[in-house]
Nucleic acid binder design. Structure first.
Lengths: 225, 225
DNA sequence: GGTCGTCTGTGACGAAGTCACCAATCCGGC
DNA sequence: GCCGGATTGGTGACTTCGTCACAGACGACC
């Protein structure tokens, strides 16, 4: 693990205003971490042991049951931190979720002592960490609202829009979409077919093209992705 | 708001080992809060403005959608803290959950400045707060696993056992049970009827008596309540 | 072109949610 | 006591969703 390239701190805007002495702690005790795509970041009952700040790439955090059913909880992108590792650092508790890199990931790892030093010394750092906690908590609440209250059709529409972002087409299988919202492949296939019949999307093997984002947005409803 | 009765700190074991100067901050800036049963603790987009430590009673935290559907997220009992208020204090973010007292509640409220002072000064206090965060996060993950992966029958059995605790009978309506696990009243009624036909419980208006906890535990499965 | 593994489509069925409606019970007022 | 309204529980019909079984379609590779 080498030192991260200089200037990485600027990529985390809430941290870029830290006073010099606190910056020194951060930059002094950090190491670069590079992960390939589809790598395991952590699994239940397996601590990660370091505080991770994501610089590049995307990490998917999800739940898995014994039958292989899956549901995505949230994603971590550039500028966000992995709070599950902070849990393991500051609280003894460990909780059971999986995390996998979706793309190659570049991150900065902070030693646990440096993390605790900063938490003790820097109000800005604490606020940064707490904000991340609050956001993740909000993500989980959103997932609960979706699975408990929303129809598959609206959740699927919402997720298609979220995954497509601004692009027209996305490369994803029906099985992967089912894992996104915690449903079954056949159910997703059938709903996608009706979307296609309505002219909202067009389907090809491993590929979905969005034609009518407005209609999708309408069926997604006021609820969030 | 009067000062809480002396010795309340002993009720929060992780805090009882604080050094004298940190205890002084806690006891000096705290006020007693008494809430009746069925009172609103907080609602979405409405900050509570203080750090709450629960001494007596129970608070139910739940999600609600526009159609009145409900699902319980977790409960706070004696010795636990309300992390949603800490979110509002340290992070600007607010998230949308409801909290209601199930019984009369006695709590201690800490001013926000005292909270931040303690977070800055006391590693033990930080660890206490972070542990609470981790536990709540674990609760939410458990809820997600349940709604996404478990059958109604097993979730109902698990919840009956959890609510009954060691008692044989519990006073609860089918509607309330449905709100516990995020289902519909009719579904709960039907499952309870089959439980009764199997001799596991007996039903009366607003009352359920558990006769065969072992069988309930078996259908609840290895998963958590 | 042929083979194999992955991906998608479909029918049948059970489990769960929704809707409509009624019956039983409780509670307060008289 | 009795009555009337409100709450609670029971049930059938129907829709949506999850599960199972299986077939066809496509792409990668030889």
């Amino acid at each position: 693990m080498s030192a991260p390239s200089p200037g990485w701190l600027a990529e985390f805007s809430p941290l870029s205003t830290l006073p010099p002495d606190e910056r020194a702690i951060l930059t002094g005790a950090s190491a670069s971490v590079a992960l390939p795509a589809d790598a395991t970041v952590f699994e239940p009952h397996q601590a990660c042991g370091a505080f991770l700040l994501v610089r590049q790439g995307r990490i998917r955090v999800y739940q898995l049951d014994r039958d292989g059913n899956e549901i995505v909880l949230y994603r971590l992108g550039p500028g966000s931190i992995c709070i599950l590792t902070t849990m393991a650092l500051l609280a003894a508790d460990r909780y059971s979720a999986f995390a996998t890199t979706e793309t190659a990931v570049e991150a900065v790892a902070l030693t646990d002592t440096a993390f605790e030093t900063l938490m003790a010394r820097s109000g800005r750092f604490r606020s940064f960490v707490f904000t991340a906690h609050a956001e993740r908590m909000a993500d989980l609440m959103r997932v609960i609202r979706n699975v408990a209250f929303e129809s598959i059709e609206s959740r699927l529409a919402a997720r298609l829009l979220a995954l497509a972002a601004d692009r027209r087409a996305l490369s994803i299988t029906h099985q992967q979409l089912a894992a996104e919202i915690g449903s079954a492949r056949e159910v997703i296939s059938r709903h996608l077919k009706t979307f296609e019949r309505r002219g909202w999307v067009s389907l090809a093997r491993g590929r979905i093209e969005v034609h009518d984002a407005a209609s999708l947005r309408r069926t997604a409803g006021p609820g969030d992705a």
